[in-house]
Amino acid sequence: MTETFDNNLIEDTTVKLLKFAATQLPNDVSEALKKMYEAETKPTSKAALKTIVENFGIAEETSTPMCQDTGIHIYYVNIGENFPKVVGIEETLRKASARATKEVPMRPNAVNPIVGGNSGDNTGRHIPFINYDFIPGADYLEITAFPKGGGSENMCALAMLKPGQGIKGIKKFVIDSIMNAGGQPCPPVIVGVGIGGGADIALKLGKKQLMRPLGQRHSDPKIAQLEEDLLKAINMTGFGSMGLGGDVSTALDVKIEYAHRHPASLPVGVTIQCWAARRATCRIYPDKRVEFLTHKEA
């Protein structure tokens, strides 16, 4: 039998990822929020941003979850094609979620939608949800823990546009979604837009964009321009932080990705991330070296 990779290392590292995600914002997000606090001119939003900055500061210092909604557990697992054989990764990640629920602690957020009842440890049917991908040529295993808050998730939206509605239809649907969301998803938000593919693909691509660092633009200049224009337009609405009215603090960024579409359809998925943009990524190498990409280990 071929030797398989050390699942205990994957489990321990994933518990660390969940702790990082729940208690410390990635640097790009905390810096952007501080800048936004300086830039905002409306007193209500500025007051909210002040509390936000104070809050994530204390959370980091005291290793406490920055928000009581520590999210539903989602993982992105990218497997380097040259990484050693791993067996039972799903079970390992489920164990990590259950352990982190106690150790961080995180709020139990897995509820049976049919008969009710909270599982108590953030695991359940299909939860944690794991997205798998392969990385050609890589020898590492990359795991992102993405505990996703419910308030912002409730404001995600899908439109199956008519192809004739084109780019204009896409822009309108994004703005309509923001108008509908208002202060409910805890702005300043990050907006991830997926276009094309199919209903599930559009939403999945949209959500995956929420992993991209703030300020990073799409490699296609047309899409990059669309990201910038939509960001500017969303901030023109003036909802501001927490929907209290603000001139620069409705959104931190807009990220877009597309897939080719079926001739008959133009799906658009709008996903929304609250200011507490919790994500933590690591790479595990065949020699058991662990590198955290978003956080620094104390």
Binding site: T64, C67, P108
Partner: peptide
Amino acid sequence: VGGAAVVAAKGIKRVKEVHWLDLGTPE
């Protein structure tokens, strides 16, 4: 302020009582 959970917790001195725990700790 949404999400400002540790600032909120600072203002909470103690849990006086808890009821209806069968609904789960969030509810």
